[in-house]
């Protein structure tokens, strides 16, 4: 299998740095603007792209990404737009992993098989579904795996060693460690607690571990990059879109570049 996700993490490991994973909400501020925004992230040095699927009820998100969801829906975001954005992205960037992230209902609305097939055809490498825990995997997991799309699971501070094998069962791509018990965007976790958690997760899996929730600055990214295989930044980027709208690509590219530079400094620092 031509696995862009594992190839990308392997490349970053060779370069002696953590991968930079960037999140933005698809169709924010408009469906037409997303392509240039994704290009700006790649140009700035993002290694993997998470494309948020807008939902009316983003229960796991803080104010920044809630507002992004509402902006996207107000601009008329449809599921078809998300797949069109993904398809075009894949054509422009054949090697950059693209992950859809969102909530269950828009993903299963036309059936899990339909969604998995559409994702595969659009060149999507993995799916993160916030509200399908391992207990409800049959709802989406089998369809994705059959289509060759990774079901990327989340682990959290409440996922103990006993539960971890169940979370890992059927998961692929990488493991997304949610560093704080809470919603996206606001809190910061102590680096020591992240280091301890990553070590615990590493003991249970060979999958790369990406750490997210509350990572906003190059300094934080550099700290987490020392202990994790990947660093996820979302709300800080989404805030730029909120402030700059369709003019967001330039400042997005600048922040992404500074995050990437911070991750690369690890090599120099050591």
């Amino acid at each position: 299998m031509n696995d862009r996700i594992s190839a990308t993490f392997a490349k970053c490991r060779e370069e002696g740095r953590a991968a930079l994973v960037t999140f933005i909400t698809g169709c924010d501020p408009t469906p037409d603007a997303t392509g240039a925004i994704l290009d700006a992230l790649v140009a700035g040095g993002a290694d993997l792209i998470e494309l948020g699927m807008p939902f009316t009820d983003p229960m796991a998100d803080g104010p920044a990404i809630q507002a992004a969801n509402l902006r996207a829906l107000a601009a008329g975001a449809k599921t078809a737009d998300i797949f069109a954005i993904a398809t075009a992205f894949r054509a422009r960037h054949p090697d950059v992993p693209l992950i859809l992230m969102g909530y269950a209902n828009p993903m299963i609305r036309r059936g899990a098989d339909w969604f998995a097939d559409a994702a595969q055809k659009a060149g999507v490498d993995g799916v993160i579904c916030v509200d399908i825990p391992t207990e409800e995997d049959p709802e989406l997991g089998p369809a994705l795996r059959a289509a060759g799309v990774h079901m990327i699971r989340l682990a959290t501070p409440t996922t103990d060693a006993k539960r971890l094998p169940a979370v890992l069962d059927g998961s692929g791509g990488f493991l997304y460690y949610v560093s704080v018990a809470g919603v996206t965007g606001k809190q910061q976790a102590a680096t020591a607690s992240i280091e301890e958690a990553v070590a615990r997760l590493k003991a249970g899996t060979d999958l790369p571990i990406a750490v997210g929730f509350g990572v906003r600055t190059p300094e934080q990214a550099a700290d987490i990059g020392k202990v994790a295989d990947g660093v996820v930044v979302g709300s800080a980027l989404v805030d730029i879109i909120a402030a700059h709208g369709a003019d967001a690509p330039a400042p997005l590219s600048a922040l992404t570049a500074s995050l990437r530079a911070a991750l690369e400094q690890k090599e120099i620092a050591q």
Binding site: P133, E135, E136, R153, V178
Partner: peptide, 19 residues
């Protein structure tokens, strides 16, 4: 598993699952 036929279940974020 908390299902009433196809309905019900536990569709929550991983953070809440252990609780």
């Amino acid at each position: 598993r908390g299902h009433f036929g196809q309905f019900g279940g536990r569709y929550v974020a991983e953070t809440l699952m252990p609780l």
